[in-house]
């Protein structure tokens, strides 16, 4: 019998950077009832107009196999790599966290940011914007700590990932 356990996979796609390509990828997930946990997109080869899409998804092994085959079938998709299945990879997320406050909480926020190696990228007398990169768990932990210290806003990317080694 087929395994029914839900697995989480990080997929890395190279696609033609043309109008509608993202809609095709997203439409495939919504149309077929697959999950998107996070998604990041940017052009990585401007000369050839090729973008990389990193999508984190989850499902049974059979669903994951379907997702990969269905993605590969889209005409503007050049390649689909399952980083989770293919070996070790590094994954990072980036967040910007706005913290508003004065006095002791402000000092505490700065102190914790330092521990997390988060950098202030904007500061006023009453606020900071910290930039943090790291694993999803690290970013989560940082946000949890900032919340009681006057966090008013957060913006974060999905997962960026790349295979380790050559």
């Amino acid at each position: 019998m087929q395994s029914q356990t839900i697995e989480r996979h990080t997929l890395s796609l190279l696609v033609d950077n043309e109008p509608g390509v993202l809609a095709r990828v997203i439409g495939l997930f919504s149309g077929r009832g697959y999950n998107i946990e996070s998604l990041t997109v940017a052009e990585v080869n401007p000369a050839e107009h090729i973008s990389r899409i990193i999508v984190v998804t989850s499902g049974t092994p059979m669903i994951i196999e379907q997702i990969k085959a269905q993605l590969d079938r889209l005409v503007p998709v050049h390649s689909v790599n399952d980083l989770t299945a293919e070996g070790p990879f590094v994954a990072r997320e980036l967040a910007m966290v706005k913290v508003v406050g004065k006095g002791e909480t402000r000092v505490e926020a700065l102190r914790i940011a330092d521990v997390f190696r988060a950098r202030p990228v904007d500061s006023t007398i009453e606020s900071f914007v910290f930039e943090i990169t790291g694993s999803g768990e690290k970013v989560d932990a940082f946000i949890d700590l900032m919340r009681p210290l006057g966090m008013t806003d957060v913006a974060r990317t999905g997962s960026l990932a790349i295979a380790r080694g050559r």
Partner: peptide
Amino acid sequence: IDPSSINKNVR
């Protein structure tokens, strides 16, 4: 010819 047809309903 279509890899997405494989293992879709039946392993």
